[in-house]
Structure formats: C-alpha cells, structure tokens
Design a protein around this nucleic acid. Structure first.
Lengths: 213, 213
DNA sequence: CGTTGTGAACTCATTCACAGCT
DNA sequence: AGCTGTGAATGAGTTCACAACG
C-alpha cells in the first residue's frame, strides 16, 4: 500500500492503520463488553504499550484496572478514522477486481456508498453488476461533479489509470483508491491510497527469504 | 497491508516496500540507461536522500556524478527482495478476486508460479480458470506437501480463512498472502502478509478527512 | 489486584550537509 | 558541474517502568 502525503492531524498513518486493525478485533470480543490493551495487542501483534499509546491519543477512553468499553472504543476509533459517516464513491473499471470489491464484506455497511460504476467497454455498459448499472466512461466527469462524489476507486488496467485519475481529480474528487499497478500523479489536495498487488507479493517473497528459521 | 514479524536482514519492511516502488519506476525510465536518486525520489514521493540511503544499503551500485545503472539497480533490488527466482504458489478460493489476481500484470512473469487452484465448492472443482484446473479442497494438504509449495494465497471468505491457513501451514507452506478480512494466526516460522481491503478504505477516509485544504 | 496513562529512555528512521568521485 | 555515499544532527516512533486509579 502507498499513501499520499501525511495527514494534518496528530495521528501518523501507521497509527491510523493500527486503529483499523484494533477495530477488526472488537466485534469478535465485543460480547465481553470490555477489552484490554493486552488482548488487542496480541491479536494484532504489537506491544500492549503501543496499543495504550494509540488509544490514549483518542482521548480518555479507558478505565484503570478495567480496560476499554468495547462499544465506546469502537465508536471513538470510527470517529477518528472518519468512518462514522457515509462516504460516496464511484468505481471505475468493471472487471473481476471490481466485482470482488463490490461483494466485499460490509463494503456498504462500513459506510462506503457506491453511487456509480463506469467502464469504457461498450459491451459492459448497461449491464447490472451487484445491483449497479454500468455507465459509459463519457458520463463520468459530469456525474461525479453533479453528485459531488467524494471517493474514486480505480480498477482499470495500468495504461488507463492515470487518465481516469486525471478526469476524477478534475471533477472534484477528494480521494482515490488505486488498484492499478501504476504510481499515479494527483494534485496535492487529492488523497491517494494505492494497493499494488504485485508489491504485496514482493513483500511476501522478501519476508520469506529473510525469515529466520 | 499487515506484515508479520520483522525480517532478520538489515532491511526494514518499510525500506523493502520502497524498493518495490523504485522497481516500478525503472522500466519506464530504463531507456535512459542510467537513473538518478532525485528522479526516483519524486516519482515515488520521498526525498532523494532517502532513495540514496535505501540503495546504498544494497551495496555500491551508484557512480558519483552519474547515477545508477538502471539494469544493475533493477537486478540488485530484485535480488534483495528475493524475486530473482521462481516462487511456487497455490491459490485457495476461486472467486472474483482470485480471477483478478490470476490476470494481474506479470503475475507469472514476475516470478510467481501458480501451481494449483483449490476450492471447496464442488461446482467449481474441475473448472478451468486462466489455464488452471480447480482442485477440491481435500487434496490441498497432500498436493502442497508433495510439490513443496512455498507460498499460499488465501482468497476465501473470512469464516474459512483461518482453517485454510492452518491446513497450509500444516502442509509446510513458508508464506501466506491473505486477502480475507481476518487477522490470521500462523506459526512464527510462516511469513504472513495480509491485505484487508476494508482497511484500505478506512485509510483513505482518514486521509481525506484529515487532509489540509 | 489488574489495567490504564504517561514521563523518560531508547531505538529506529529520516534529513542535512558536504566530502569525494566522474 | 552533477550525483553518490555517509557521518552527524534531527526527529519520529516505540518500549520501559511505574504512579494513579477503580
């Protein structure tokens, strides 16, 4: 994953990333009502001190001797990450990856509202995918602008990615999630998260190669 | 993305990640024959000093006053990341994400050799996907062991991910790339890279929400 | 008791600045 | 002149260790 410029808040992107991970552990342990730093720690694989530091940065959420209230903690993390509200998004490039994303667990329920699908392939235009009709590429700029869409998800081939990004940025998008294996150029006011799957493979090869036996 | 334990080599995972990114910039600029730290730097979005530090860690590759020879640099990075050789891999869970991965740019050419596909769905078993026949779940352990497969890619639903991981680890796999939205538990000798797509969305929301206007 | 919150120490990573080559 | 390699300085992030509290 690549991130764009660092955020203006006091939270580092690495810390925000860990918060997302803590969030994943809470549902599974929520029935307990309360959860401790050490439980979160060995779930995620960091130190308990790290967990406490991260959470302390969100305000005074814990109770000494007891732990953190699961529901309160979850809400605080959600608020900090900015996922306590709906985000509108468009998805560009309706291939297998797009279909996989649309089916992804709680994509909608997590607060991300896909408002349109676009593709340049005329044979795909008009098709219905996971309840959304595929719109032609030419309508992209106008729709994004009219609906004031905030986020764009790019799942087109590498060659097309930069031009799609340019159109979306021109239409006033605020953030892009790029899956094309390309380092995109975007204006500094647009946030960018890139997931290059081949990079993930390389990381795995590196880890395996350097793992101590 | 989540990484497992840090590597034994002198290279941090963050540095390894940047090396992957440098690698992405080289083909595009390879015709120049030589490439400088400042070019790589503003391509990837880090400082030129950072690039030089990263590359200097791989040995003496640069020529003062000139830059780095593109081909030499590319090979050195490949060697460091461990992608200068073939890796055998199996893919478990033949859904849309799996299909997308199989089609991904240079999946094979980058040195990752998918030797088998598995799925527990009997209607998928026997199908041919991107040139590979889908095998039944039950054969997984035996095949992985017999072929001494090194890497496993998990693209099953969250509920099934841990049990798939357990089987693969039991069969002697060395590294796992997990796409299920689950924090997996694996023995410390197995390397783990997780890509939770909902985490990527949360990161984007966080960045957009905290972006300075 | 058990668990948080946090100053202080420490480690790791990045940037600065410039000497050393070509 | 241009660009790398690298000590030294700086900064960020993490762990330690323990006081504070229910």
């Amino acid at each position: 994953m690549t991130r764009g410029r660092p955020p203006a808040s006091g939270l580092s992107t690495a810390a925000a990333f860990r918060l997302s991970q803590y969030l994943r552990c809470i549902p599974a342990n929520a029935d307990a009502g309360t959860i401790s730093s050490s439980i979160l720690a060995d779930f995620v694989g960091v130190s308990d001190a790290q967990v406490r530091r991260d959470i302390a940065a969100l305000g005074h959420l814990g109770q000494r001797g007891v732990g953190y209230d699961a529901a309160t903690l979850r809400d605080a993390i959600r608020r900090t990450l900015g996922i306590d509200r709906k985000w509108t998004a468009v998805l560009v490039g309706v291939g297998n990856l797009a279909r996989a994303l649309l089916r992804y667990r709680g994509f909608q329920t997590q607060g991300f509202d896909i408002v349109a699908l676009f593709d340049s392939d005329v044979t795909k235009v008009g098709q219905t995918v996971e309840g959304h009709t595929v719109l032609p590429h030419e309508q992209m700029a106008a729709r994004v602008q009219a609906l004031k869409v905030e986020l764009g998800v790019i799942t087109v081939p590498a060659e097309a990615a930069q031009s799609v990004a340019d159109v979306l940025c021109g239409a006033g998008i605020k953030g892009l999630l790029n899956f094309a294996p390309m380092l995109l150029r975007v204006p500094s006011k647009v946030s960018l998260v890139s997931v290059d799957l081949s990079v993930q493979f390389e990381q795995l090869a590196f880890l395996v190669g350097t793992a101590r036996s």
